[in-house]
C-alpha cells in the first residue's frame, strides 16, 4: 500500500529529484518562468495561473480521493498539515504582497532562474534574506504568533460538514465556475494582452 517508501528510506531523495524534474518541466511548459505572465492574474490580462493552479489541485485531490477509496493509498500515512488560522492568514497576506512586488512565488522563481531570468535570481536571494530575517527575529516577533488559531488537522469537508467526496465535487464545480468567470472577465472588459 502506498506511500511506497518509508519516510526514512533514501529512495525518497531520488523520487524527490525526479518529481522535481517533472514539476519544473511542467511549470516551464505552462509559461510560469516569466513574472509578467504570472502577474497577469492580478491585472486580468492573463489568467493562466488560475487555470493551471486549480486544474492541478482538482486533479490531485480527485486522484488522491480515488487512490484512497480503492485502498491503494493510506491517507493516514501521507502529509497532512495542521491548520493554524491566524498565522496562515497573516502569512498569506505577507506572501500576497510579496507576489505583487516580486512577480514570483518560490517554486516559480526557481523555475525562472533555470531559464536565465536575472530578476528571478534576485527574488531567490530575497527569499533567503527573508528567511534569515525571520529566523533571527523568531523569538521576538514570530514564535508565539505562529501558534495562533490552531484548529487541528481539519479537512475542508469536515469543516463544512460534508463527506470527502462531496467536498471534492464542490471544489470541482467551483473550479469550473472560476475558469468560466476569468474568461468572461477578460472578454467583457476587453482587457488587452501585455507584450513581454
Amino acid at each position: 500500500m502506498a506511500p511506497i517508501f518509508e519516510q526514512t528510506s533514501e529512495w525518497n531523495l531520488i523520487i524527490a529529484l525526479l518529481i522535481g524534474i517533472a514539476f519544473g518541466w511542467v511549470l516551464e511548459r505552462a509559461g510560469f518562468s516569466t513574472s509578467r505572465k504570472l502577474a497577469g492574474v492580478f491585472y486580468g490580462y492573463d489568467f493562466v495561473v488560475i487555470k493551471v493552479f486549480f486544474t492541478a489541485a482538482i486533479t490531485a485531490s480527485l486522484g488522491l480521493l480515488f487512490l484512497n477509496y480503492f485502498g491503494v493509498l493510506d491517507f493516514s500515512k501521507v502529509w497532512m498539515p495542521t491548520t493554524f488560522l491566524w498565522s496562515t492568514i497573516v502569512g498569506g497576506i505577507i506572501m500576497g504582497l510579496g507576489f505583487i512586488l516580486g512577480g514570483f512565488c518560490p517554486g516559480t522563481s526557481v523555475c525562472a532562474v533555470a531559464t536565465g531570468k536575472i530578476d528571478a535570481l534576485a527574488f531567490v536571494v530575497g527569499i533567503t534574506l527573508g528567511i534569515f530575517f525571520y529566523s533571527f527575529t523568531y523569538e521576538y516577533l514570530w514564535e508565539d504568533f505562529r501558534e495562533y488559531g490552531n484548529i487541528g488537522n481539519v479537512k475542508i469537508g469536515e469543516l463544512i460538514g460534508v463527506t470527502e467526496g462531496v467536498a471534492v465535487l464542490i471544489f470541482i464545480l467551483f473550479g469550473l465556475f472560476a475558469f468560466w468567470l476569468v474568461d468572461k472577465i477578460k472578454k467583457e472588459y476587453n482587457i488587452k494582452d501585455v507584450e513581454y
Binding site: G98, G102, F104, F133, Y134
Partner: peptide, 9 residues
C-alpha cells in the same frame, strides 16, 4: 524582486 522575495520568505 528582492523585496518581494524577502516578503515571501
Amino acid at each position: 524582486a528582492i523585496l518581494g522575495g524577502a516578503l515571501f520568505g
